Amino acid sequence: MAVTLRPATRDDAEAMAAIWNPIIRDTTITFTTEEKTLRALRADIYLRSEARRPWILAETDTVLGFAGLAPFRDGPGYARTLEYTLYLAPEARGVGLGSRLLAEIEDRAAGLGARVLIGGVSGDNAAALAFHRRHGFEIEVTLPRVGWKFGKALDLVLFHKYLS
Score class of each variant (00 low, 15 high):
residue 2 A to Q: 02
residue 3 V to I: 11
residue 5 L to I: 10
residue 5 L to M: 14
residue 5 L to N: 03
residue 5 L to D: 09
residue 5 L to Q: 07
residue 8 A to Y: 02
residue 8 A to I: 06
residue 10 R to S: 06
residue 11 D to F: 05
residue 11 D to R: 14
residue 12 D to T: 04
residue 14 E to Q: 02
residue 14 E to P: 06
residue 14 E to T: 14
residue 14 E to N: 10
residue 15 A to V: 01
residue 17 A to H: 15
residue 19 I to H: 01
residue 21 N to C: 04
residue 21 N to L: 09
residue 24 I to C: 06
residue 25 R to T: 03
residue 25 R to A: 11
residue 26 D to C: 07
residue 27 T to L: 12
residue 28 T to P: 08
residue 28 T to R: 03
residue 28 T to D: 08
residue 29 I to R: 13
residue 29 I to F: 06
residue 29 I to M: 14
residue 31 F to N: 13
residue 32 T to R: 04
residue 33 T to Y: 08
residue 33 T to D: 02
residue 33 T to E: 04
residue 34 E to Y: 06
residue 35 E to D: 03
residue 36 K to P: 15
residue 36 K to W: 15
residue 37 T to S: 03
residue 38 L to Q: 13
residue 42 R to C: 00
residue 44 D to F: 08
residue 45 I to N: 10
residue 45 I to M: 07
residue 45 I to C: 05
residue 46 Y to L: 13
residue 46 Y to G: 14
residue 47 L to K: 03
residue 48 R to A: 13
residue 51 A to Y: 15
residue 51 A to D: 09
residue 51 A to W: 05
residue 52 R to Y: 12
residue 53 R to W: 00
residue 54 P to M: 05
residue 54 P to F: 13
residue 55 W to N: 00
residue 56 I to L: 09
residue 56 I to Q: 04
residue 57 L to R: 09
residue 60 T to I: 07
residue 61 D to W: 12
residue 64 L to P: 15
residue 64 L to V: 10
residue 65 G to V: 08
residue 65 G to I: 06
residue 66 F to K: 00
residue 67 A to G: 11
residue 69 L to G: 14
residue 72 F to T: 15
residue 72 F to A: 12
residue 72 F to P: 06
residue 73 R to D: 07
residue 75 G to A: 13
residue 77 G to R: 14
residue 78 Y to M: 14
residue 81 T to A: 12
residue 81 T to W: 14
residue 84 Y to R: 09
residue 84 Y to E: 03
residue 86 L to P: 01
residue 86 L to M: 01
residue 87 Y to G: 13
residue 89 A to V: 08
residue 89 A to D: 11
residue 90 P to S: 10
residue 92 A to R: 02
residue 93 R to P: 01
residue 95 V to L: 09
residue 97 L to M: 02
residue 98 G to L: 00
residue 99 S to Y: 07
residue 100 R to S: 14
residue 102 L to H: 08
residue 103 A to W: 06
residue 106 E to G: 05
residue 106 E to H: 04
residue 107 D to P: 11
residue 111 G to R: 04
residue 112 L to W: 10
residue 113 G to K: 00
residue 115 R to N: 13
residue 115 R to A: 12
residue 117 L to R: 14
residue 121 V to H: 02
residue 122 S to E: 09
residue 123 G to F: 05
residue 127 A to V: 15
residue 129 L to E: 01
residue 129 L to N: 00
residue 129 L to M: 15
residue 131 F to I: 02
residue 133 R to F: 06
residue 133 R to D: 02
residue 134 R to F: 13
residue 135 H to S: 12
residue 138 E to K: 13
residue 140 E to D: 05
residue 142 T to Q: 09
residue 143 L to H: 12
residue 144 P to T: 04
residue 145 R to G: 11
residue 147 G to Q: 12
residue 151 G to T: 14
residue 152 K to S: 10
residue 152 K to T: 03
residue 152 K to W: 06
residue 153 A to K: 15
residue 154 L to I: 15
residue 157 V to D: 13
residue 157 V to F: 01
residue 157 V to G: 01
residue 158 L to Y: 03
residue 158 L to D: 01
residue 159 F to D: 08
residue 161 K to V: 12
